[in-house]
C-alpha cells in the first residue's frame, strides 16, 4: 500500500474530522451553559445544507422569486437562519424545561429532529440531492506536492479549522468568553454580578445551532444533501463527545479532528470497521477513562 493512498485517506478523514469538530464544538458550547444535549444538532446541520440547496436551486420554483443565492452568501445567511431557529426553540420551548430533569431537553430536541427530518423527507429524496452551487474558484484540484487534492475539500478543512479555533479563542481569551465561562461555572452568582445570564444562554444556543448550520453548508457540495444526513452523523458526534469529554472546548475540537482521522485511516486498513471504529474507541475510553480524555471527574 503506497504512502500516497494512506495520506489521501488521512486528508479525507481530516475532512470528516473538521465536521465532527464543528458539531461537537457546538454541542459542547451548548452543554456547557445549558446542561442540555441538543439531539436536534444533526437536524440543524441537515437544515443548513437544505437551506443552501433551496436558496441555490429552488427559489424560483418554490417561492416565485427568481434569485439564486450562491455559496458565498449562503455561508453567512444560513447560519443566521439556523441560529434564529435555535433561538426560537430555546425561547419558546427549552426555556420551560430547565427546572426539570435534563433528559426532557434531550427528548424535546429528539422530537424536533423527527419533525424536521419528516418534513424534508416529504419533499426530497432520502438518497440525496446534489448541491450544484460549488463556486468556480474552488473547483478543480490543488497540487500538495505529494498528491492532488480537491480544492473545495481543502477549503472546507481550512475554513472549519479557522472557525473552530476562532470560537476557542473567543471563549478562552476574551472578555465575552470569560463572562460565558463565569455563567457556566456559577449561573446564580454571575447573575448577581449584573450579567444577563438568560440572554447569554439564548445567544449561546443560537450560536451552537448556527455552527451546525454552517457545517451543513460546508458539507453540501461534498456529500449530497439528504434528510438523513444529520441523524447518522450526530450519533457519531455523540460518541466523539463521550470520548473527548465535554470539559473543554479544545478537547471537543481535538477529539473531533483525531477521530475523523482515525476513521479515514480505518477505511484504508480495514474498511468494514470504518463505520464502527469510533464506537469501539468509545468503549475503550469508557473502560479505562470513564470521564473522557479531556473530561474532569465530577
Amino acid at each position: 500500500m503506497s504512502i500516497q493512498v494512506i495520506l489521501a485517506q488521512a486528508l479525507l478523514g481530516l475532512n470528516v474530522g473538521v465536521f465532527y469538530a464543528m458539531l461537537s464544538l457546538g454541542l459542547a458550547v451548548i452543554f456547557g451553559l445549558l446542561n442540555i444535549i441538543n439531539f436536534a444538532h444533526g437536524a440543524m446541520y441537515m437544515l443548513g445544507a437544505f437551506i443552501a440547496l433551496i436558496g441555490y436551486s429552488f427559489m424560483d420554483q418554490w417561492f416565485g422569486i427568481s434569485i439564486q443565492i450562491g455559496f458565498w452568501p449562503s455561508l453567512i445567511i444560513v447560519p443566521l437562519l439556523v441560529g434564529g431557529l435555535g433561538i426560537l426553540i430555546e425561547r419558546t420551548m427549552l426555556k420551560r424545561l430547565y427546572d426539570l430533569d435534563h433528559i426532557y431537553g434531550l427528548l424535546l430536541t429528539f422530537g424536533i429532529t423527527l419533525i424536521l427530518q419528516g418534513l424534508f423527507s416529504n419533499y426530497f429524496n432520502v438518497s440525496g440531492t446534489p448541491y450544484p452551487g460549488q463556486p468556480d474558484a474552488l473547483s478543480g484540484v490543488v497540487n500538495l506536492g505529494f498528491m492532488y487534492f480537491p480544492t473545495y475539500r481543502l477549503f472546507a478543512i481550512v475554513f472549519s479549522l479557522v472557525v473552530c479555533f476562532a470560537t476557542w479563542y473567543v471563549i478562552e481569551h476574551t472578555k465575552l468568553g470569560s463572562r460565558l465561562r463565569a455563567g457556566v461555572e456559577n449561573p446564580q452568582l454571575t447573575q448577581t454580578f449584573g450579567l444577563n445570564v438568560p440572554l447569554m444562554v439564548t445567544l449561546t444556543f443560537g450560536f451552537g445551532a448556527a455552527l451546525a448550520g454552517l457545517a451543513g453548508v460546508l458539507a453540501a457540495p461534498i456529500y449530497s444533501v439528504s434528510p438523513l444526513m444529520g441523524a447518522d452523523l450526530i450519533i457519531v458526534v455523540f460518541a466523539v463527545v463521550v470520548i473527548g469529554g465535554m470539559g473543554s472546548i479544545m478537547g471537543a475540537i481535538l477529539s473531533g479532528l483525531a477521530l475523523g482521522l482515525i476513521e479515514g485511516l480505518t477505511k484504508v486498513f480495514y474498511p468494514p470497521a470504518a463505520s464502527t471504529v469510533i464506537f469501539f474507541l468509545m468503549v475503550l475510553v469508557l473502560l479505562f477513562r470513564p470521564a473522557g480524555l479531556f473530561g474532569k471527574e465530577k
Binding site: M93, R96, L97, Y104, L107, L108, F110, G111, I112, T113, L114, I115, L116, Q117, G118, L119, S121, N122
Partner: peptide, 17 residues
C-alpha cells in the same frame, strides 16, 4: 408516508412540554 414522522415528532414535543 413521511408525515407520520412529523406527527410523531409533534406528539413527542407536546408530551414533553
Amino acid at each position: 408516508g413521511s408525515w407520520v414522522q412529523v406527527i410523531l415528532g409533534t406528539i413527542f414535543v407536546i408530551c414533553v412540554m
